[in-house]
Each structure stands twice: as structure tokens, then as C-alpha cells.
């Protein structure tokens, strides 16, 4: 039974977008801060810090999670996927990211990393969503710029392209 003391930093190892990373965290450090400040992966954004806005949404072991509602030490040994893992290579966008650009599904871009992670996950398990499905699913995210309409259009467009065989690779 490991007991990690409050006033020391402890080694946290995880797989980030397929790459092994490690860093030190106090038990109280949130995964958002660990990713951004310790690892330097600043793609995951920090909004409300209490699980409401969805900007920090990532995948932990293949399931969606709010990074701000996760302690870094809880994520020790897991496999984490963040927005940095979406593009197939530098300079190229995934099908979903390209749809966001075409549809102007972002303005300030603050909420975008979380929404991309959620929709990427969702479209893999729900290839044929209706507009209502996407609206319902987006309920877990706040966007203060777009009014959501272009985000929904981008998601439906990406879903159709993915069904027609377009891939991220």
C-alpha cells in the first residue's frame, strides 16, 4: 500500500499519446497542471477547474475524463490521450480537426481541445449520429464564442467523411 506524503513530490509515470513520460507531482496536483506545467503539454486547457466547462477533457485508458477532476497521482500507470495526439503528423490535421477549420467551429479556441477530444471519442463509437445526439453530447462542454452551431456542423461533416472512408492517417 503506497502512501505518498503530502509535502513531497512523487514520481508519476504515464503514457502520453503513445510516448512514455514521467514527472514529479505532489499528491494534490491536478492532472491538468501535471500535463501543462510538469510535462509541458499545454494543449489541454484549464477553464473552470471544477468539471463543468469541459475544456480539459482528455482520454484516460480509452475513456473520456476531465483532467481537472483527476489527480496526477491517480493517473500513474495509465495511458493518456490529449489533443496533441489527434493530428497524424505535424502540419496535418485529423478529419475532425479539418472539419472544425472548414466550418469555423472555433473562434478563440479555448474550449476546442476538450471538444475535439470528446467528439473524436464519440464519433469512433457512434459513426452515424443525428444532430440531436451531437447536441446532447456537447452538453458536457461550454463554448462562449460560436453558439455551438458550427461545432455541430463540423461534427456531422466529420462523421460523414469518416463513414466514407476518409482517415486520419
Amino acid at each position: 500500500m503506497p502512501r505518498l506524503s503530502a509535502d513531497q513530490r512523487h514520481c508519476v509515470r504515464l503514457t502520453l499519446n503513445g510516448r512514455a513520460v514521467e514527472g514529479e507531482a505532489e499528491p494534490r496536483m491536478l492532472l491538468t497542471d501535471f500535463l501543462r506545467h510538469v510535462i509541458g503539454a499545454t494543449g489541454t486547457h484549464v477553464g473552470c477547474e471544477h468539471g463543468v466547462c469541459g475544456a480539459c477533457t482528455i482520454e484516460i485508458d480509452g475513456a473520456l475524463a476531465r483532467a481537472c477532476l483527476t489527480l496526477a497521482v491517480q493517473a500513474d500507470g495509465t495511458s493518456v490521450r490529449t489533443v496533441e495526439g489527434l493530428a497524424p503528423e505535424p502540419g496535418r490535421l485529423s478529419v475532425l480537426q479539418a472539419a472544425f477549420r472548414r466550418h469555423h467551429a472555433l473562434q478563440c479556441g479555448f474550449c476546442t481541445p476538450g471538444i475535439l477530444m470528446s467528439l473524436d471519442h464519440y464519433l469512433r463509437s457512434h459513426p452515424l449520429p443525428t444532430e440531436t445526439d451531437v447536441r446532447e453530447f456537447l452538453g458536457g462542454h461550454l463554448c462562449r464564442c460560436t453558439g455551438y452551431v458550427p461545432i455541430i456542423a463540423a461534427a456531422l461533416d466529420a462523421a460523414e467523411r469518416l463513414r466514407n472512408g476518409e482517415t486520419d492517417a
Partner: peptide, 13 residues
């Protein structure tokens, strides 16, 4: 908003 300090115990049983 950051938590105050605490010890973290990962129980195995």
C-alpha cells in the same frame, strides 16, 4: 483553485 495538501494512499486491499 488548487486543493490543500493531503497524503495519498492507494489501497490494494
Amino acid at each position: 483553485m488548487k486543493p490543500a495538501r493531503f497524503d495519498y494512499v492507494r489501497a490494494d486491499s
